[in-house]
Simulated assay, not measured.
Amino acid sequence: MAREYPDAIILGLSTNGGSGQYFIEQVMAHTPTPILVLSTRIADRHSPSAVAALVAGALDALPAPDSWSAELESQLRHTVRQISKVRAIRHPRGGLARISTADPTKPGSGRQAVVALAASTGGPKALATVLAGLGGLNAPVLIVQHLNPDFTGGLLDWMARASALPVEIATHDGVAQPGRVYLAPGGSHLRLAPNRRLELGSTPVTTHRPSADELFRSVAEHTGSAGVGVIMTGMGDDGARGLLEIHRQRGQTLGQDQASCAVFGMPQAAQRLGALTTLLPPEQLATAILRAVSLVRA
């Protein structure tokens, strides 16, 4: 039981052993407090150590200088005053069981569900809501969000802060691990390849790159009925035909409902093709995804 309730916590990380991340997770799960991480291992907010701290629930992560000047001390005091005013929100990861570290290149017996989400206009906010509710999900999550490549880093930061699961930018030939979220990098298609490998590519030339259709079609091809496709708010019809392929493979297909969409274009296009089985608001999509994955693994 926590006995101290500080206005803010400044945490110095000197190693990458994971103890600092665990501490952040526990604080944010049980006694939510604004946390500022300072570390010599952090070059900027996109550094792996910074991303890990933000994923765990820290409010900000900054490089620690080799020596402190009066100006740097003043900046730190200002930052601490600012974050101490922020109302910390409970972060679920500290209350979850740790994900298995078994070799991801050797999938276990039985079918492995793969979840694919796609969004465009209004997508980041809706995606953040869904990811916050996916704690304990035993499937990889692949995401296509139509976005200018210059904003990919900002999207990563936002999703990492909101998500109950670790979030990273997808890398070519990486293995999609259960319980992790992979964002398509700006300007590159994200596809699922055999053995849960991730594939990035610049072709085909499409209106949107990354393309939701490319992601959904690859999931349909390589997971069959174990695929779970989710199409969310956005303009146009990208993703509708790919989602139909998942539906034809008897995978499970979900969409964001019209009332909660900034633009209902993408879900509506999928609905018109008969590709959707369910339409729900973002706060209910997470529960539907968890159930869909549990049915695959049943």
Rank of each mutant, 00 (worst) to 15 (best):
L11T: 09
Q21G: 03
Y22V: 08
F23S: 09
A29E: 06
T31C: 04
V37P: 00
L38D: 01
S39L: 04
H46M: 11
P48R: 15
V55P: 00
G57Q: 01
L62K: 05
D66C: 05
D66M: 13
S67H: 11
S69Q: 09
A70G: 09
V80L: 08
V80E: 13
K85R: 09
V86M: 10
K106F: 09
V115C: 04
A116M: 04
L127Q: 01
I143G: 00
H146K: 02
N148T: 13
P149L: 03
F151T: 11
T152Q: 05
G154P: 03
L155R: 06
L156H: 09
A176S: 05
Q177R: 14
G179Y: 11
G179A: 15
V181C: 05
V181L: 07
V181S: 00
R191P: 00
R191H: 05
R191S: 05
A193I: 06
R196L: 07
L198P: 01
L215Y: 04
R217H: 13
S218Y: 01
H222R: 12
T223M: 06
G224N: 13
V230P: 01
D237Q: 14
G239F: 00
A240S: 15
G255M: 02
A259P: 04
M266N: 04
Q268A: 07
A270W: 02
A270V: 08
Q271K: 10
T277A: 11
L280K: 07
L280V: 07
L280N: 00
L285R: 01
I289D: 02
